[in-house]
């Protein structure tokens, strides 16, 4: 089994995966975006998927800890909301979201979506442009979150 996509690692056999992180980024806005022409900072949607073994801790507790950490550590945070939802596979999910504003530069909406499969905590961190976050776009992202499902292997990678 590959331990890292696109890379062969001759790992010592006693090594096991501890945590994984992969990030994705959407293409940059086109020149049709008026903010590009005005030299304002355009928001390029990004997604970070992080997975690690956290043991036997309830998802609600973990979500609370994440929320507390974000409130204490992220400057310029506003519009904080937390809501529970169900993944398509029936598992519990929690979304923590907030606005991240840098005055006169941009406002982003960030979602921290968590799910737990046994001892593995998965966190998806989505950052999108709040200005273009219409109801349609929001529904699309929520559907994306809901479709996140375990593959049944119980593996980290």
């Amino acid at each position: 089994m590959p331990v890292h996509a696109g890379l062969h690692l001759a790992l010592p056999p006693e090594f096991t995966i501890d945590q994984t992180m992969v990030s994705f980024r959407a293409p940059p806005p086109t020149v049709g975006d008026p903010r590009v022409m005005q030299k304002q900072t355009p928001i390029r949607p990004s997604l970070i998927v992080h997975r690690r073994d956290v043991g036997d801790v309830a998802l609600e507790i973990l979500a609370g800890e994440i929320t507390a950490e974000l409130v204490q550590s992220v400057g310029g945070l506003s519009g904080l909301t937390t809501e529970a939802f169900s993944y398509d596979d029936g598992d519990l999910g929690i979304i923590i979201s907030f606005d991240f504003a840098v005055p006169e530069v941009m406002t982003a909406r960030q979602y921290h979506v968590v799910r737990k499969d046994g001892p593995i905590l998965t966190t998806l961190t989505l950052t999108v442009d709040k200005l273009t976050l219409t109801d349609t776009a929001k529904t699309r992202w929520l559907a994306f979150f809901a479709a996140v499902a375990r593959d049944g292997t119980g593996a980290l990678a």
Binding site: L70, A108, D129
Partner: peptide, 15 residues
Amino acid sequence: TAAGRALMGIDMATG
């Protein structure tokens, strides 16, 4: 950390 990923997400989103 969640805070680290939050900041990283912002950095990525702003290029």
